[in-house]
Amino acid sequence: MKSAENIKVGISIGDLNGIGSEIVLKTFEDQRMLELCTPVIFASAKTISFLKKKYNSEISIQGVDNASEAIDGKFNVVNVWKENVSVNFGEEDPKIGEFAFRSLEAATKALKEGLVDVLVTAPINKHTIQSENFQFPGHTDYLAKEFNGESLMLMVTDTLKVGLLTDHVPVKDVAAAITPQLIEKKVNIIYKTLKQDFRIQEPKIAVLGINPHSGDGGVIGKEDEDIMKPTLEKMRNNGKMVFGPYSADSFFGSGNYKNFDAIIAAYHDQGLIPFKTLSFGSGVNFTAGLEKVRTSPDHGTAYEIAGKNEADHHSFKEAVFKAIDIFRNREEYKELTSNVLKKQSKKI
């Protein structure tokens, strides 16, 4: 297993007009972070040097032309582009969106090739990054395509994990999107990730209802009675501890969420509003279901404070910590699983 400082954390720089570069620099201003991992930032040494001066950062930059040249224990910056970048904090700019994509594309390629071990993404502007090469609602869908995986957005802290049945789907389309197949797929992803990535041997999962009061027996919509309940019952009968649907309006306020290892919300705001209310600034977005580890902070570009040196970097720092933890847990899980299979084959 890799020693701590040899775990290479690939970092896509996100929207340069937002707070991404600030939170990256602030995270690694603490030299102890370089003992924990080796950061590999995909941008350009010239751009990062400009931003370093802007934020009065004392980080020493190690510029490299390829992630394979990254040096352990250094703040490595891969030169993805050579040209000058015009940074205008707080402004939406398609040109900046292009640089955000180039950073993400290069970081993803390095992750595929094993040149970095995990990926932590700084926030993008989902509008300005759109192009012929990027036609996705966000990072999650892009990475699912790149890694041919079934992804699930999972918001995590040490004590709270909230996944989504549907993520960046318009509210008017949510009910139609939720099918028995989708429920089974998402529950299976979260069940597996709780075991292999979070070391929970017997995961206990709660699922929130689609309609107010989970439909009140069909009075307020029939989806919970006709789709959600029978699907969850089928999965319980197959051995998974998955319960619900629970009425979303009282689930978090009552503290019921503390009785479960993870909660699956029916749609984006149903899950993320309570999650961010309970944990804003310390939460992490983890893309479960992929063969590689990707995390990000639980916030966006924050244009309103960009360039003012006011951004709180703790969620990004937690995203780095969580990516490393999940990487280690997954490696241990693979090793344990391999050993079990070897013992079983010997008995045969």
Rank of each mutant, 00 (worst) to 15 (best):
E5W: 00
I7M: 11
K8G: 04
I13M: 13
N17F: 06
G18L: 02
E22I: 06
V24Y: 13
V24E: 04
T27H: 12
E29S: 15
A43Q: 10
S44T: 06
N56C: 07
D65E: 13
S68I: 14
S68V: 12
A70M: 03
A70I: 03
N76L: 13
N79K: 12
N79T: 09
N79G: 00
E91Q: 13
I96C: 09
F99N: 11
F99D: 03
A100H: 12
D117K: 04
A122I: 08
H127M: 06
Q130G: 02
Y142V: 11
A144T: 10
L154G: 04
M155F: 15
V156T: 15
T157A: 05
T159Q: 13
K161T: 01
G163C: 11
P170R: 10
A176K: 15
I183C: 07
K185M: 08
N188D: 12
Y191C: 00
Y191F: 14
Q201W: 00
G209N: 09
N211C: 07
H213Q: 06
D224G: 05
D224A: 02
N237M: 10
M241Y: 11
F252Q: 07
G253D: 09
N256A: 14
N259M: 07
I263H: 04
L272V: 05
I273F: 07
V284L: 07
P297E: 04
G300T: 08
G300Y: 11
A311P: 14
K322T: 14
E332L: 14
E335W: 02
L341F: 09
